[in-house]
């Protein structure tokens, strides 16, 4: 029962953003062209950054053919820096003369918007944002290995099983929301023997988040990962190259956005309490994130170290 509630909560939170789209049509339609893209750009940055976070919590993969297993819940928090809350905009529509204005709120920016005074007491309104400081995200994850130092990770979640519980049958913008992600890792350190004191792994991940044609998000990450175990702690990190994009389409409003995130550095630690894994990490990028995970891992540690535990 607790688990079901947690899953429902997580997915309810995930859908908040998309669910709002219907109410926000007026807001979004206020913008067109370049202003609109800049207004919505942080959405692409945040979604991409969150989807590419929390994929791993160690870099050790069993050599040969040995069962290795992890199942857990990964949460991500994209913290919104001040520069993602404002942008430089130019008035549109019937307001003349066209005026360029600094510090106009993005969709995550100040609630009140910005007013530009024009000739003859005319006024142009730049819409306000949602005044948020961070955006949470969460997803279940399953990792299975190891086949010659290779494992496969899957993330999948869907609103469909909860449509009737939340009475979303008629809310088309949300009721088909679905996340699917996969990743594959291969151990590099198995070829290096004792040359380096840490485990090294190369991984590739790809995630999509879709809601019919209303929302299409993709995110991909290729990263080199390293981990070092000390007692019950595994310290890990990675350097990755990432890309992501978001397409939002609602009636006459369309945004096609590419995230600004391109390189990320990950630093984290995992507590190995027997099979229970609790990890936390910070991802530094154009849009930084904090990620925390909780799960059950089997055979995720080197054999000799496991015996000392």
């Amino acid at each position: 029962m607790v688990n079901k509630r947690i899953v429902l909560l997580v997915w309810a939170l995930m859908t908040v953003f998309v669910a709002g789209a219907q109410d926000y049509e007026d807001l979004l339609s206020r913008y067109s062209g370049e202003n609109g893209n800049k207004f919505m750009q942080p959405v692409a940055d945040v979604l991409g950054a969150n989807l590419n976070s929390g994929w791993f919590h160690n870099a050790y993969l069993q050599p040969g053919i040995k069962p290795q297993f992890y199942v857990g819940l990964t949460t991500m928090f994209a913290f919104l820096p001040d520069n993602s809350k404002v942008f430089t905009a130019t008035t549109e529509g019937s307001f003349f003369p066209a005026t360029t204005v600094e510090d106009v709120p993005t969709i995550f920016g100040d609630n009140d918007g910005k007013i530009v005074e024009g000739p003859g007491s005319t006024r142009y309104y730049f819409p306000g944002g949602m005044e948020l400081n961070y955006i949470p995200f969460a997803t279940p994850q399953l990792s299975i290995g190891s086949l010659f130092g290779t494992d496969l990770s899957i993330r999948y979640a869907s609103v469909k099983p909860f449509v009737s519980s939340f009475e979303l049958e008629d809310v088309n913008v949300v009721n088909a929301l679905q996340l699917f992600g996969w990743g594959i890792r291969h151990s590099v350190s198995q070829y290096l023997g004792d040359l380096i004191p840490v485990d090294l792994t190369l991984g590739y991940y790809r995630t999509t988040l879709t809601s019919r044609d209303y929302l299409n998000v993709y995110a991909s990450l290729i990263s080199i990962q390293a981990s070092y175990r000390q007692s019950i702690f595994t310290f890990y990190g990675g350097i990755g190259i990432e890309s992501s994009g978001t397409r939002i389409e609602y009636e006459s409003v369309t945004f096609d956005l590419k995230a600004n995130n391109s390189v990320r550095a990950t630093l984290g630690a995992c507590i190995n309490a027997g099979p229970v894994k609790i990890n936390a990490e910070y991802n530094a990028s154009a849009q930084s994130t904090f990620s925390a995970g909780l799960g059950i891992g089997i055979n995720e540690l080197e054999k000799q170290e496991k015996e000392t535990w």
């Binding site: 607790v2 947690i6 909560l9 997580v10 939170l13 908040v16 709002g20 109410d23 926000y24 007026d26 807001l27 206020r30 819940l73 949460t75 928090f77 609630n111 009140d112 918007g113 309104y125 819409p127 306000g128 944002g129 949602m130 005044e131 948020l132 400081n133 961070y134 955006i135 949470p136 969460a138 309490a273 229970v276 609790i278 925390a292 909780l294």
Partner: peptide, 26 residues
């Protein structure tokens, strides 16, 4: 411990989703 961790995570997420007034500008 697991339950406490989950509650902390859930609470963090809830605080980000407090109700916000989003003005419309039609």
């Amino acid at each position: 411990k697991i339950l406490i961790s989950l509650i902390v995570v859930a609470t963090l997420m809830m605080t980000a989703c407090e109700e916000k007034i989003l003005y419309l500008f039609p």
